[in-house]
Design a protein around this nucleic acid. Structure first.
Lengths: 198, 198
DNA sequence: CCTACCGATCGGTAGG
DNA sequence: CCTACCGATCGGTAGG
């Protein structure tokens, strides 16, 4: 027998375990909110005691911020990839909407919604979340700026309306009834206004 | 000296006090959420100890539900009154949107937003909230059904998109920058699609 | 990764 | 309406 920890010889087991905890936490935070999810809840879902999680993370706040950032990183990657496959502005917007809704509405998603509910997190956490979200939203700023909108449409308000629409979709969509593509198509149908019909 | 309580001879002081507590609770719940607002917070804002509130209310859950119902009652009254003054379907919709946004965006509102954040409340409370909200939303169902929309617009999805738009406005609107009228006008401009131009 | 615990805070109550 | 307290739960830590 040796004092060496077995897990050390298992390749990237530490990283895998940590990743699994992040995904479990993401799911619970998305389902029950920040305050509604205790460290003991996360521990139970991961098969360990709540206190044992602190070997992998620094604090609940840091865990929440990391989950949120990882989700937006992944969302940015997927949306960018989806948008690149189209050249027409409305098609690019619809691809972005579909992609974001797929992420927001996937119940088994590794990358969860939760850009909302900022009210219930501590102020320092909220500041980090908002900063990251603002960066994420510049992606949509470019898409909206490329649209051939009528001149009486304020693009800043328009973008905010569109983003809050996408963020709140998870609140009313019945899973399984409508696909992300169908919802995105309806959203673009509503938001589509062309400056000229020519 | 007598054993009679002075407050009894003061007309409707009990009702007034209770109403004040409801309004204070409404404001705090709207600002910090259900879980983020403790009974001690509400007591402090009302100038009493947290435990003293239980003379006026039965439980935190019941308080939250009552505040929510009172807010929707008032919103229904105001919206109905605003809509009645118009006959054209789009004008009626815009009046309803303006009215609801006025309520949602008023920082000193007696009747606060909070139809969102259902994730963080206990399940029985959530059930009561959802039931009341569904009834509230039938008001918008009638307005949307009267719109001369193109046939490819699904009115059920359309209504959900509109309502989630109105509910999430408080999350992105900077107070003082845009008036409820301006936001409502932009929303209707986006959502306006007529079946025929004739 | 666990047991056992800390101090803080919560909703709510008793008794006055 | 207050003081004083209850049992429960929280995030987090010590020590192994």
């Amino acid at each position: 027998m040796t004092t060496m920890d077995d897990r050390i010889s298992e390749p990237e087991a530490g990283g895998t375990r940590r990743r699994a905890i992040l995904e479990i936490a993401a799911r619970l935070f998305a389902q029950k909110g920040y305050r509604g999810t205790s460290m003991r809840d996360i521990g139970e879902a991961a098969g360990v005691q709540g206190g044992s999680l602190y070997h992998h993370i620094k604090s609940k706040d840091a865990l929440f911020v990391e989950v949120h950032h990882a989700a937006l990183d992944e969302a940015e990657r997927r949306i960018t990839r989806a948008v690149e496959q189209h050249s027409q502005p409305w098609a690019r917007l619809e691809a972005a909407c579909t992609s974001l809704l797929e992420i927001q509405l996937d119940p088994a998603s590794l990358t969860m919604p939760m850009m909302n509910d900022f009210r219930e997190v501590p102020a320092p956490v909220r500041a980090a979340l908002i900063e990251r979200r603002d960066r994420f939203e510049t992606l949509f700023r470019a898409l909206v700026d490329d649209l051939p909108l009528p001149p009486n449409m304020d693009r800043s308000i328009y973008r905010n309306l569109l983003l809050s629409q996408l963020n709140s979709a998870a609140d009313w969509v019945r899973p399984g009834r409508l696909t992300p593509q169908e919802i995105a198509a309806q959203i673009v149908r509503v938001f589509r206004h062309d400056a000229s019909t020519g």
